[in-house]
């Protein structure tokens, strides 16, 4: 079942001197249970592509279809789609420092209107599944880098989204923690059929995905 499709996406930035074409005619399709990785050099437009697919940024040309419906960052339904159908993991964990691990994970559920108790119960359940049962009441500054990123991954998954968009999720981690995150992604994909688009610099890790692409000078090429 198709979750996401990108048709002829193009994005460029113009300053007073020149126009920089970041993405050129990108076409991509993603079905449930797909695990796609995108590699590319710094500045190749990987994050920009992910932001457009995640309805965080606007494309100049082309369209994004989620659940068969054409949407963009400016659509009225964008916030709802980001809350219910998409999950995000970034290179930096972006946990709210004044909230505990469980409260951070519960955020998407609270935004969706779930009660405090149910949201926290669901967050606890998920964090225990991620091996963070002892860290539920810890604040982000009391967690290690790997733990912070796992909490961030749990937050992306708590609303059971159709697709998780991960922008260099292991970029700030040591090899052991990177491997642990990748193993978690593979397990979730295999056991739950969770779809992922993972952007990474790490070509070896990218090979663990079902489909790998390389973004080169704004052009998306299958590997």
């Amino acid at each position: 079942m198709q979750i996401l499709a990108a048709r002829h996406l193009a994005k460029s930035y113009t300053d007073s001197a020149q126009t920089i074409e970041v993405l050129k005619d990108i076409n991509l399709e993603l079905n449930s249970a797909d695990l796609v990785s995108i590699t590319g050099k710094s500045g190749s437009g990987k994050s920009t592509l992910l932001h457009i697919l995640g309805l965080l940024d606007m494309q100049n040309k082309g369209s994004v279809l989620i659940n068969g419906e054409e949407v963009s960052a400016s659509s009225k339904s964008a916030a709802k789609i980001r809350n219910q159908d998409l999950g995000f993991v970034f290179q930096f964990h972006y946990l709210i420092e004044d909230l505990t691990a469980e409260e951070n994970v519960a955020l998407p559920l609270l935004i969706d209107g779930m009660s405090h108790q149910k949201s926290l119960a669901r967050a606890r359940e998920l964090l225990c599944g991620f091996g963070l049962g002892e860290r539920l009441k810890h604040y982000s500054n009391q967690l290690s880098g790997g733990e912070q990123q796992r909490v961030s991954l749990a937050r992306a998954l708590v609303n059971e989204p159709k697709l998780v968009l991960a922008d260099e999720p292991t970029g700030n981690l040591d090899p052991d923690n990177s491997l642990e995150i990748w193993n978690t992604i593979l397990r979730l994909n295999k056991d739950l059929g969770q779809a992922f688009i993972v952007i990474t610099h790490d070509h070896e890790a990218a090979k663990m995905a079902h489909v790998t692409y390389e973004l080169d000078h704004g052009v998306l090429k299958p590997n």
Partner: peptide
């Protein structure tokens, strides 16, 4: 600003 970005990303409205 990070918190604002996270909340916007996970679907919170501007007014919220």
């Amino acid at each position: 600003k990070n918190e604002i970005a996270v909340l916007k990303t996970v679907g919170a409205s501007q007014s919220s």
